[in-house]
Design a protein around this nucleic acid. Structure first.
Lengths: 200, 200
DNA sequence: CCTTAGATAGTAATCAATCACTATTTTTTA
DNA sequence: TAAAAAATAGTGATTGATTACTATCTAAGG
């Protein structure tokens, strides 16, 4: 019956996961430290043994997201035979990430919308920049290999790619149906493919 | 030198405009009734002469947005000679609306992200549904007139259209440069055009 | 032991909402 | 038509609830 103490590092990880889980159910801005603690089964004050401020918690969450999401799309793109396949794999990997963690985009958009440059926003911003870098690399690869239309604006393609996901995510969240994105994603990506691929 | 009282309807309009203006500068979730009142040059308590709750204020803002934005894209599409021109006109009208009111998408996304179905979210949701209805009409027109590829999924096209705007808006907000959307919009729409138009 | 995770019980600040009261218009009525 | 009455707009102070954060005490475990 011993309630064993959890090491600090584990507690930090559990805290991050609690926030991600809560964000799937409610507006990230409304997540209180009390709610996080309750979800972890500890008292509210205990959180501040491991994080100096609430903002530091959110920053840790953004770090967690950046690591996992980027690793996921990297893995997806590296396994693909062609640039266009890589884009599709990245797209589907991102969709899969959302299905597993529907609270994440809510947190991301929430942080990115902030006007002041807070620490969590900085991390989110940096992740988005790295995401775009990956996209640009794959797109340029596709252009030089002749698979993608060379006349298209690479930056615009990146914006469209990310917007495509945003649109699908928003629709899923509004419908309250996370799986909706799985059903709609192929149709939307088919349009993207038409826009970017060289004409047969 | 008499400071005259403002009629209730005018005061309501001024309140809505204050919120829209404030949202251009800060996170909508952080807008307090005190800040709204200060921006209007009245005391905080005065707001509650015209609105029963803060939520009612936000609902009025969403009504304002729905009216103006839908009127704007309707006007744009009606003046266009072909369905594809109509889509482009709607797109540019939406972009123009964002440039004039950069706080609006922030509020919209903020409300739509909420988990509970609040009154403001309901209004925003309804607006989005009506927006999609307009898109679907134009797209179906284009398909039957042979201007748009018939094999494409209409719903997916709507999602892509809205996502395209979301992506551009997010980039503009992140860059802190409202005019960026004006520069990037044509390139992104050109991709959309490639995706939807019948091949020459 | 003695370091550390956690509990308990706070505090100070913030914020939406209320209320009693005043100032200004508008409407009624003599 | 002018005075009286009613309705409305606004002030300023307050309240109760919420929330991030903290000080102090307890107990687990190496």
């Amino acid at each position: 019956m011993q309630t064993r103490y959890m090491p600090a590092d584990d507690r930090r990880a559990v805290t991050v996961e609690a926030v991600v889980a809560l964000a799937a159910q409610q507006n990230p801005g409304d997540i209180t430290t009390a709610a996080i603690a309750a979800h972890m089964g500890v008292t509210q004050g205990a959180l501040f043994r491991h994080f100096p401020t609430k903002e530091a918690i959110l920053e840790a969450v953004m770090d967690w997201v950046a690591d996992r999401l980027l690793a996921r799309i990297d893995k997806a793109s590296h396994g693909a035979p062609t640039p266009l396949d890589a884009l599709e794999a990245m797209f589907m990997a991102h969709v899969g990430f959302f299905v597993e963690h529907p609270g994440v985009p809510r947190m991301l958009f929430g942080e990115l919308q902030r006007a002041e440059m807070t620490a969590p926003k900085r991390v989110a911003h940096k992740m988005l920049r790295r995401y775009r870098e990956r996209l640009v690399t794959v797109i340029e690869d596709g252009k030089s290999s002749g698979q993608l239309e060379q006349g298209n604006d690479t930056a615009a393609l990146g914006t469209l790619f990310i917007g495509m996901i945003q649109g699908l995510v928003m629709q899923s969240l509004l419908a309250g149906d996370v799986q909706l994105i799985r059903r709609e994603a192929p149709g939307v990506f088919a349009l993207f493919r038409r826009a970017v691929a060289v004409r047969p």
